[in-house]
């Protein structure tokens, strides 16, 4: 028989306590200083400056002595509302959400298609990434050419008996913008979904095979839950990217943009760089930031987006 010797509890606890003391109290936090400084210079100072600019009457007349530009409180914010900002926010958000909703199934389907090994899979994966690696400027220029009244798209449509009409002005421009955005942005969802698929444990596939699960229940009840975290995160990032996309509407439609595609970045750009109302455009930017941060916060709380925790739980 062997007897279990109880280790001297008191000394062990003391050791552990000391170790914890070292890691928590004497952490070399000062090592974070360079990064912190960089954050202050790159993010904090410009943000504070933008806030400040939004409170002053800064335009081409006061730019030279911008420190002395008159302080006008919330006037810029009040003016933002009467300058069509709310309409622009609505266009931006609806455009971004619709684009995201449309790209998710495409992205996931593409990821599933390239999950299993087959001949030429590498090529298919490469081809899928083409829209994503093309610069936004190029994508917009090519689509602008194709969507001309006498362009390729209308020529094809007329072959099947559909009257094309104008894609780059009027109400249709909104759908043209969404269409091009979807074309350019779905590979992002595809990449995120593919990464998540790759991380599904081999055992999971084996277990479903052993249980004899057909492909659809397997996909819906076993595989897709694994994708939930990464795809929700991708949705968030993609939506923000859509909202922030300036190049695409600018190159597709030019400035001034048709009213139907006067998205937030466009209105801020025109106010800032064509009307030279820097104060007003800063107020617009700050307002947009706040107005978008609120639903974003709710979304984050609702989906409890913590990929690691989810992975850990499984």
């Amino acid at each position: 028989m062997t007897t279990l010797v109880r280790p001297p509890a008191s000394s062990e606890a003391k050791k552990e306590q000391r170790r914890r003391g070292v890691t928590e109290r004497q952490r070399p936090l000062w090592l974070l200083t360079p990064g912190g400084l960089l954050m202050v210079v790159v993010i904090l100072i410009p943000l504070v400056l933008a806030l400040w600019i939004s409170l002053i009457d800064l335009d081409q007349y006061t730019l030279r002595r911008w420190v002395e530009a008159p302080f006008i409180g919330l006037d810029n914010f009040v003016e933002s509302f009467s300058s069509g900002l709310l309409n622009s926010i609505w266009i931006s958000v609806s455009f971004a959400v619709l684009s995201t909703i449309a790209t998710v199934p495409i992205g996931i389907a593409a990821a599933l298609v390239t999950q299993n090994k087959y001949r030429g899979r590498g090529l298919v994966r490469a081809v899928f990434l083409i829209p994503y690696v093309l610069p936004s400027f190029v994508v917009a220029t090519v689509w602008r050419t194709m969507l001309q009244p006498d362009g390729v798209v209308n020529a094809w449509l007329s072959k099947v008996g559909i009257e094309g009409g104008l894609w780059l002005t009027g109400p249709r421009s909104y759908w043209a913008l969404i269409l091009v955005e979807i074309w350019a942005a779905w590979p992002f969802i595809y990449l995120m979904a593919l990464a998540a698929l790759q991380s599904v444990d081999h055992e999971v596939h084996e277990a479903s095979a052993v249980d004899g699960a057909p492909w659809w229940p397997k996909l819906r009840r076993v595989i897709l839950p694994y994708l939930r975290g990464p795809v929700l995160l991708a949705c968030l990032l993609a939506t923000l990217n859509h909202i922030n996309n300036f190049t695409l509407p600018f190159v597709l439609f030019g400035a001034p943009a048709p009213e139907d595609v006067n998205v937030m970045p466009m209105i801020v750009y025109v106010t800032s760089f064509q009307s030279l109302r820097f104060g007003l455009s800063a107020a617009m930017a700050v307002l947009s930031l706040v107005l978008i941060a609120i639903p974003l916060f709710i979304y984050l709380r609702a989906v409890r987006l913590d990929v690691h925790e989810e992975g850990g739980r499984r």
């Binding site: 210079v41 943000l47 937030m264 930031l289």
Partner: peptide
């Protein structure tokens, strides 16, 4: 969001 462009300018 859009503040980025302006803040960049300010920066």
């Amino acid at each position: 969001m859009n503040a980025k462009k302006l803040t960049a300018l300010a920066g």
